[in-house]
């Protein structure tokens, strides 16, 4: 037993050495020890205000849910997050918002080695975490998770509904990770979350902005029917 382990270790050793040497050489050649140090600080930056025009998304004009303000922040070198606060015509607590997290691939070999923790979980929700989130987002409202997914320009998304006597709220969430047709190579995934409360009874009216939003990232993100439209 011990002999076998010893052999395995010996066999692995050259490979490990080569890999270690490669890493050291890459770091040294790149003169990038400072880069590594910078990228080890992986907590999110503070939020900063951005103009709606600088957002990577265009929302259909909707007087009930205008953009009140938008913010952005980054986490490490690969996550960009945006928070778009929308108007809230109700008296309920909590902000209406669209959140976007863009997970890009590291732009250098070094980036592969130093990555911040993922800013959103995958799966986006479990039964438990969804229940917790709904209770937090819509305290006192009766909630129900939709049985079937809906579809917007970038694919299927799930949503939940919360209602009381006078208000209706929706929470929709979507993970875009289709590299075959939707996402450019540089983007690993995009996560969208949309939370809106309104005084309409029909949730479709609340979901309309989410159904029709258009992503405007520098690298083109294709819509699901782009390839079948013509």
């Amino acid at each position: 037993m011990s002999g076998r382990s010893h052999r395995v270790r010996k066999a692995l050793l050259p490979g490990l050495l080569v890999r270690g040497a490669l890493l050291a050489a890459t770091l040294a050649l790149g003169g990038c020890f400072g880069w590594v140090d910078n990228n080890l600080t992986q907590s999110p930056t503070p939020w900063r205000r951005v103009q709606p025009a600088d957002l990577p998304v265009t929302l259909p004009a909707n007087p009930k849910f205008p953009i009140v303000a938008a913010r952005a922040r980054t986490t490490g070198a690969i996550y960009s997050s945006y928070n778009v606060v929308l108007g809230n015509p109700t008296l309920l607590p909590g902000e209406n918002r669209l959140s976007i997290d863009v997970h890009t691939l590291p732009d250098s070999p070094l980036g592969m080695f130093v990555q911040p923790p993922r800013v959103f979980p995958v799966p986006l929700y479990s039964t438990e975490t969804l229940a917790e989130t709904l209770a937090k987002e819509f305290p006192g409202l009766k909630t129900k998770v939709a049985d079937s997914a809906r579809r917007n320009r970038y694919g299927d998304y799930d949503f939940a509904l919360a209602q009381d006597a006078t208000n209706t709220c929706v929470l929709a969430w979507q993970l875009i990770s289709d590299h075959d047709r939707t996402l450019p190579r540089r983007i690993e995934a995009i996560r969208l979350e949309y939370r809106v409360c309104g005084t309409e009874r029909n949730p479709r009216a609340l979901l309309q902005p989410f159904d029709n939003l258009v992503l405007t990232l520098p690298d083109a993100v294709l819509e699901i029917d782009d390839l079948t439209r013509f």
Partner: peptide, 10 residues
Amino acid sequence: ELKRPTEAEA
């Protein structure tokens, strides 16, 4: 107080 700080700021 309703945790709607962006609208509050406005």
